[in-house]
Amino acid sequence: MATTTETTLRDAFVKARRERSLVDIETLPVPASLEEALSVQADVSSAMGYSHLGWKVSIAPDGRGLIGLMPGPFLKPGDTYRSVPGAELRVEIEIGIRLGRDMPRRPGKPYSRAELLEHCHSAFVGIEVVESRIADWTHVQFPLWLADAMGHGGYLIGQDVPFEVFDSIGELTCTIELDGDVLYDKPAVHGNGDALAPVLAWANREHESALGGLVAGQVITTGSLCGGVLAPNLGPVIARLDPLAAISFALA
């Protein structure tokens, strides 16, 4: 049975999504555990009727894998991401994968990195737009952030790249330009070292999740290579992962 915290968060996040509005953080309780936060995600997904088309993954401080639902919108280069008025937007340059085969949970027999790649259909340059339903999430506690799908707003899928890119992240450079101003220009760095580590952490989780598992056809984004770059205003964006791709889109 859902707890009071889960019910309160589910109702608040569902209302915000349906009405394209923001929620005051002071009105939101904090989940007592990461498991409770994931349950909130599952409840919101069910209430919204979302298809499980994709995931963003992360690793908790204790090493366990975590996941955030990406139900779309999935955009392509040249598209416009339409935000909620007043929402804070951040742009993240990433490498994503498409699963070609299901990866059911295997207790006692963890997947290796090589096996993960064998289950992938392809890899691509991706851009995540982070847009939380929480109005001011500067100091949000992580369980609450997780309950809101780690602030996922939308995802832009760029060109395919070879799997070998995961072995040469440090040779790449991330640049983000918004309305003619360069917001970020630094070497690519993944917070976990290996960009595939968060995917493996979730694939090798100890317990099943109400959100479900990894299924062929799903998109998984492996985490930012530039941190979360704040967009101080709206307008045309050019995001580069040199020398692989330059992707143009717009924030509105």
Rank of each mutant, 00 (worst) to 15 (best):
L244K: 06
P110H: 02
E131Y: 04
G180Y: 08
P104L: 07
M70V: 10
K76H: 15
L22S: 12
D136K: 05
G126L: 00
A239S: 10
A135D: 01
G96V: 03
G126T: 00
I169N: 08
A231T: 00
G153K: 04
L196C: 09
E177R: 13
T5G: 14
I93N: 08
E94V: 00
S248I: 01
A123H: 05
A246G: 11
T222N: 09
A195M: 06
S39G: 14
H119W: 04
L28H: 11
R105H: 05
A246Y: 06
A87F: 03
G154N: 10
V219W: 13
F124I: 01
P107K: 01
V199K: 02
L234K: 07
F166Q: 10
S45Y: 09
F124G: 00
G96D: 06
L156G: 08
V140Q: 05
V140Y: 07
R17N: 13
Y184G: 02
S83A: 15
E92Q: 08
K186T: 09
E26S: 15
I95T: 01
V57Y: 00
E19W: 10
L146S: 01
W145G: 05
L99D: 08
L244I: 03
R106D: 00
P31D: 11
C120L: 11
A114C: 04
I97S: 07
S248L: 03
G223L: 02
A32H: 15
S33C: 12
P61Y: 02
P232W: 05
P232R: 00
Y111I: 00
A201H: 03
A210S: 14
D194S: 12
G228F: 13
G170H: 15
G213D: 13
L38W: 07
H121M: 11
G228T: 05
E206P: 05
A201E: 02
G54H: 02
L117V: 10
I95N: 06
I169P: 08
Y81S: 09
F74E: 10
R82H: 15
K76D: 14
L89W: 06
R133L: 07
A37I: 06
D181R: 14
G108H: 02
G212L: 10
M103H: 07
A245E: 12
G212P: 12
I97D: 04
W55I: 01
L117Y: 07
S168N: 13
R90W: 03
D11K: 12
D11V: 07
E206M: 08
G154S: 15
M150I: 02
D62W: 07
V165R: 08
V237P: 05
L117A: 04
T27K: 14
R106N: 02
S122I: 03
G126H: 00
K109T: 01
L251S: 07
V30I: 15
L183W: 11
R105V: 00
F142Y: 11
M150F: 12
R113S: 08
M103S: 08
A123D: 02
P85H: 11
V219L: 13
I127H: 03
N204V: 03
S168D: 13
A252P: 10
R20S: 14
W145E: 04
N204H: 09
I220D: 05
I97F: 12
T222V: 04
L196S: 07
P31L: 12
L196H: 06
W137L: 01
